[in-house]
Every structure is written in structure tokens, then in C-alpha cells.
Simulated assay, not measured.
Amino acid sequence: MPLDLTEIERVAILSKKDFLERYVKPQKPVVIEKLTSDWPAYKKWNFEYIKNVAGNQTVPLYDDRPVSHRDKFNAAHAEMKMSDYVDLLQKQPTNYRIFLYNLVKEVPLLKRDFKWPKIGLRLIHQLPLLFFGGKGSRVFIHFDIDYSNILHFHFQGEKRCILFAPDQTPYLYKVPHALISREDIDFDDPDFQKFPALKKAKGLVTNLKHGEMLYMPEGYWHYMKYVTPGFSMSLRALPIHPANLVRAVYNIFIMRHFDNLMRRWKGQSWIDYKNDLALKRTHRTLGIQTA
């Protein structure tokens, strides 16, 4: 039995008015297929170009290992020269990913290749973030710490994106004091016996191809899998709902520091405690009886 997923709506292009009225105000995801068609990046952005302009940059890498008490919040697992990393992506499958990296800050030349979309969101110009991954690599399901509205652009290859609205959180086994679900859930092939609440979750799905943009409203859960090696860029806008702005401030200035403190104090028992609590709370809230 697969997850209950509906294809995300797609449009070729949208006016500012339609984007705001039809998607931002109701907080509804959409794929805009042709938004980047007049960007230099549409023709230029591929692995060889990135290698040529940013090959000497040392980049932080993440893999799919479970969260450990030894790791700080969002701490990288390794480093590599961008040129070596691109070679690795093209040579063989790898779990190493680049995640939330402001490569544009390190290589200002890249700023010339894209345009800031004028579609009604006040985008944060200091934070164009890049993401890279090899074939089959996955990003654990999570929602963003700052509750941003996100414009997620994909380049080179194909990427599968699964989203869940914030109101689906009760079914997703959210880990306390964190932005993630339990990491032993395989969202490609979930174990409904162990995680029966997932059967109630209603999600959205799309496969992004080169140049396409996915709008992810604030607080949306997202799981990403690279169907082929590729890379993406996210542009962000602050939350428009005051309650989400308060949640963002709490996450950034209180939650993540508390979690780091508890990891140092309690070690792996803190991680294990949170994972166990995620299971118990979800089943108790939904009245699910398990062995």
C-alpha cells in the first residue's frame, strides 16, 4: 500500500496577481514550469559549468546517517572540493549531498545567471541556497526552521518531491524539539504496520525537471529524492502568517539551542527518547493501539 499522494498542480507561467490569489494566500503548492526560461541559468547551469566557476570551493556534505548526539544541529558530515564532488556525482551514486549552502555568496558570478522573480513575495536576497545530490540520494522529510515560503528551482536531471501540509503533522511521527519525522520511516516504501498513522496522511507529489520551480508554502513538510544526479536552488520569503513568524523565532533562538544542550548533556539517550516519544505521542493522539 503506497502513501496517499496527489499530483501537485502545474502551470506554464503565472502572473503576480494569480500567484498570490491562487497559491500564496491559500497556501497551496504549485509547479511553474517556464519561470526560468529567460534566465541565463536555464542554458548555463549544469555540472560542468558549476565545476568551472566553483570547482575550488570547499563545500559541506551531508549523508543519510541517522541523527546522532555527536552532531550539532544541521552539522555537516564531510567536506570536499566542489570539482571532486561533481566528479563523484557523475561517476557513481553517492549519498553525499550539499544542503543549504550559500554558494552564490562564495561565487558572486552565479548571481548574474538568475533573476529574482517578481511574483509578490518579498524574497530574502542574502539567502539563495543551493542543494546537490547523487542518483538515489534522499533528504529526510522535514519542514524548515524559519517557516519560509520557498521557491525551489531544479537544474540538471530530475528530482522527486513529496509534500505534506502542516495540518498533516499528526500523522507524520514528528520528533519533539526537532523539525523532522522519525528517520527510520522510508517515505518511498513505508512500513504501515510499524507506522500505521501514515495511512491517514494525505500528501502531494511531483517530479521536478530542469528549469522547473516548485512553490512550497510556509511550514510544509518536504521529502526529496534525486531520481538522477542534479542540483537545485531555493529562494526564500519570510512567513506571512504572524503565528508562523513566532514559531520561526522560537525554533531559531530557543528550540535548536535547547536541543543541542540536551544532546551534550544526555547523549544518545536524548535522541532515543525523542524518537520513542514521537511514536507514542502519535499513536496516543490518534487512538491507535499497537503491540
Rank of each mutant, 00 (worst) to 15 (best):
residue 70 R to T: 14
residue 88 L to V: 01
residue 121 L to Q: 03
residue 110 L to S: 01
residue 153 F to S: 11
residue 89 L to H: 04
residue 62 Y to L: 02
residue 89 L to W: 04
residue 91 K to G: 07
residue 137 S to Y: 01
residue 41 A to I: 01
residue 61 L to V: 07
residue 53 V to S: 01
residue 63 D to Y: 01
residue 86 V to N: 07
residue 104 V to N: 10
residue 34 K to S: 12
residue 67 V to H: 08
residue 144 D to I: 02
residue 57 Q to R: 15
residue 70 R to K: 15
residue 34 K to D: 10
residue 159 K to T: 12
residue 75 A to H: 08
residue 117 P to Y: 12
residue 53 V to R: 07
residue 114 F to K: 06
residue 49 Y to Q: 02
residue 80 M to K: 11
residue 97 R to P: 02
residue 90 Q to F: 02
residue 147 Y to S: 04
residue 50 I to G: 03
residue 137 S to G: 06
residue 117 P to H: 07
residue 28 K to P: 00
residue 52 N to P: 00
residue 94 T to D: 08
residue 51 K to N: 14
residue 40 P to S: 10
residue 109 L to I: 14
residue 111 K to V: 02
residue 144 D to T: 06
residue 75 A to R: 11
residue 109 L to K: 12
residue 110 L to F: 01
residue 45 W to S: 02
residue 50 I to E: 02
residue 102 N to R: 14
residue 66 P to Q: 08
residue 158 E to H: 10
residue 51 K to I: 10
residue 85 Y to R: 12
residue 79 E to H: 14
residue 152 H to I: 05
residue 61 L to W: 09
residue 47 F to M: 09
residue 101 Y to I: 03
residue 115 K to R: 15
residue 62 Y to H: 07
residue 110 L to H: 00
residue 138 R to P: 00
residue 100 L to F: 12
residue 95 N to R: 13
residue 59 V to Q: 03
residue 144 D to K: 04
residue 90 Q to K: 14
residue 89 L to A: 04
residue 60 P to Q: 11
residue 65 R to W: 04
residue 119 I to N: 09
